[in-house]
Design a protein around this nucleic acid. Structure first.
Lengths: 159, 159
DNA sequence: TCTATTCTTGACTATTTTAGTCAACTATGT
DNA sequence: ACATAGTTGACTAAAATAGTCAAGAATAGA
């Protein structure tokens, strides 16, 4: 279980755009340089964010991307859905679609657990807004920062 | 984000063993038939569970696998760690290991969020025991069961 | 002891997903 | 018109996952 690089990248790109609201727009190339993400990949991700209505774009000279909505109304859950389609894929989905035979003795006794987990993850990510990320003191990337940081005080908002 | 089939399978195999405590042991072949999982794959998974000390095995005729510990002291978190190595892989791990350049403007402002999420997931899975799964009314596999089920009443135990 | 049973080991292959690339095109400002 | 910059979809490469295989070692029962 992990966060995909698309989601990680999307979150970082959105964070940059949130911090760049004073500027009219930021070009994909500039975002690529700032976040050290392959330019073509940046374009691909931004396009998905645009189609999901999370960012706006302007072509031509001086064009680029900008947040479509205020940072407090954009959540990580929305960002993740924009680039991956869903936050958490239920295991049983593949069985439902007839791909496999779902008959087994423990008849999905565990599936409620996965569903609860999925709900937990979704509600957490839907509770973290871009604004909260902006306010966060950027922690140094590394295990050392995990314990000492003053962050992580966000709570989950049920939906 | 999803649950891998190894973890799903491992959980189901453990559930069967938990329900079969009256029997001395259950063979891999029988487990394979009961849960409709490829026999060789079952062996592979059980071996990991054994190495993690979650199950015991006996060879020869009448041999097979059995729970090494009582169901209430085995959690989904332990099962997942046994087959996958870890529950949640932090995104920044790969950066830490020098694989990539970690310098970017938003200097892991989001990483505390991923860490919090990982902690949430781990503490949830470490709070669900095999015994709880046994008690769960097996829900029919499918979206229909998601809303109506009487399950999902488990709470997270902090660790 | 011989044999069938069943776990053990590690390497191998196939499939799927993820990550990243590319080329051709369209819109816009100067 | 021309340079800048987003748009589109197809393509490839790499990695992770899922599943297979074959040869071996322990054990129970005949």
């Amino acid at each position: 279980m992990k966060i995909s690089s698309s989601t990680e990248y999307a979150a970082r790109l959105m964070a940059v755009l949130a911090r760049s609201q004073s500027e009219a727009s930021v070009s994909a190339e500039r975002l690529s340089a700032l976040e050290n993400i392959p330019a073509d990949y940046v374009n691909q991700i931004l396009l998905k964010l645009k189609r999901a209505g999370l960012v706006e774009s302007r072509r031509g000279q001086g064009g680029g991307y900008a947040l479509a909505r205020p940072p407090q109304s954009v959540t990580l859950g929305q960002i993740m859905r924009a680039v991956e389609g869903r936050v958490f894929e239920d295991v049983c989905e593949k069985y439902e679609s007839g791909e496999r035979d779902c008959r087994h003795q423990s008849r999905c006794a565990i599936s409620p657990v996965w569903r609860k987990l999925a709900a937990l993850v979704e509600s957490y990510l839907d509770g973290v807004s871009l604004e909260q990320i902006m306010e966060e003191k950027p922690a140094a990337c590394g295990a050392a920062a995990a314990g000492t940081s003053g962050g992580m005080q966000w709570t989950t908002r049920p939906h």
